[in-house]
Design a protein around this nucleic acid. Sequence first.
RNA 1: CGGGAAGUAGCACAAUUUGGUAGUGCACUAGAUUUGGGAUCUAGGGGUCGCAGGUUCAAAUCCUGUCUUCCCGACCA
Length: 469
Amino acid sequence: MEVKEITNRDVDFAKWYTDVCQKADLVDYSTVKGSMIIRPLGYAIWEQMVAVLDQKFKETGHENVQMPMFIPESLLNVEKEHVEGFAPEVAWVTYGGKEKLDERLCVRPTSEVLFCDHFKKIIHSYRDLPLLYNQWCTIVRWEKTTRPFLRSREILWQEGHTMHATAEDAKKETLQMLEIYKNFQEEYLAMPVITGKKTEKEKFAGAEETYTIEAMMYDGYALQNGTSHYFGNHFAKAFGIEFVNQDNKLATPYQTSWGTTTRMIGGLIMTHSDNNGLVLPPKIAPWKVIIIPIGDVSAKLTELEKSLKENHITYKVDNSNKTPGFKFAEAEVKGYPIRVELGARDLGQNQVTLVRRDTLEKTTVSFEDVLPTINILMDQMQKDMYDKAKKRRDSMIYQATTYEELKDIAATKPGFVKINWCGKSECEQKIKEDTTMKTRCLIEDEAVDGNCIVCGNKAITKVYVGKQY
RNA sequence: CGGGAAGUAGCACAAUUUGGUAGUGCACUAGAUUUGGGAUCUAGGGGUCGCAGGUUCAAAUCCUGUCUUCCCGACCA
């Protein structure tokens, strides 16, 4: 029993993905390439993510601000590495009405320079630090290839920007935010993730250290689902940001930035969803329950709705005049975690049928037990989805000890490969050219013993490599 | 940005080869009968054929350009 019009996941994964996005009414394409319309269900999922993350940011002392959308060219040019990294993909505003602008304005691709420009004005003393800011906004990067949620030109995201008195404090902040992202994705999105440091070659333009959150999709491809950067004081120096420390000496502060985007929705889909459509972990689903009345059950429906409301369980009722079969299928496409089949025939025996979306397993309970059972099923489902995703991911992580072995895995098995590496970009580049795999992140908590899989020189670290979105 | 494929009603497609009144199914609207895995009947509505030029008595059809989508690379959250 498969949903009509959704391509089979194992036949054409890419097509399946865009089918799910569209059939579940998450997005629509707009007339401008790479600018997607996020529809109510897609946006509701994002709002859930925002609510949880925003609270975590505030609990750790961050404040929300809103920076301008435009960056004057001269400002973007202040930090050399940064501008070189972003210049190829920025959009420019060159006219205001009919008048050509004296200085063109770039539409922010990220806001480091805007924050620095502002920080310069407001940081004077060690008492002003740490300065912990975040903003929810959209940015623009002129991507060549675009796909709903995974790669768009207009990106809905969150970017944190902080300044600290010492390098230790800034490094601590970088890791703290990485941990918050990891916990959020594992606990709420039921996505097992790998965190670690990016290589020199893969790090953010202008950063000293970039940490990444790497998730593995159903097809074994990697998706970078967030980043946290430690900048040292490069930007601060370039922008002339200084403060007076406790010894009354001038000092340069240390900086971080960190971000997550609606790409997480894409990751969520490619981790959990199936041939019947969307599957959402209960903790992130905007509506936990869909009630499908069959026959005349209005009295019990009212009673059930009251009880759901009292227990703060969000739900929807499908009161359309479609047949039950249609409603079941529709509920599956949209990914409601729990389906309540409230049928006259069942209720005659004081029974209600509950169906969990991930396994499509049916449970029949007495009407009085509906609410507690919903809670039990949701808890179980949240846990099972994580375990299932983790088991699948772990089964697709390989270890290669020779270069031939790596090439063989790259050609035949989807997933990540752990390898020994000497740390040189040339070896990293060769892997990419030969296998299209890029380094995901360094593995710093495992002892290294042996030689670089590419050049044979002494390895200094282990690293994950994998194909990516 | 390179290589490939495709754009005709909300969706899937036909008509294009051979230029001559734009069609089918699903969806939609109204009414009726239905309702435990994608209902049935009847009657309706909806398309300047992606867009812009050109050729022609005549263009969905031929030519040129352009935009968008999908796949494979390069780039990236």
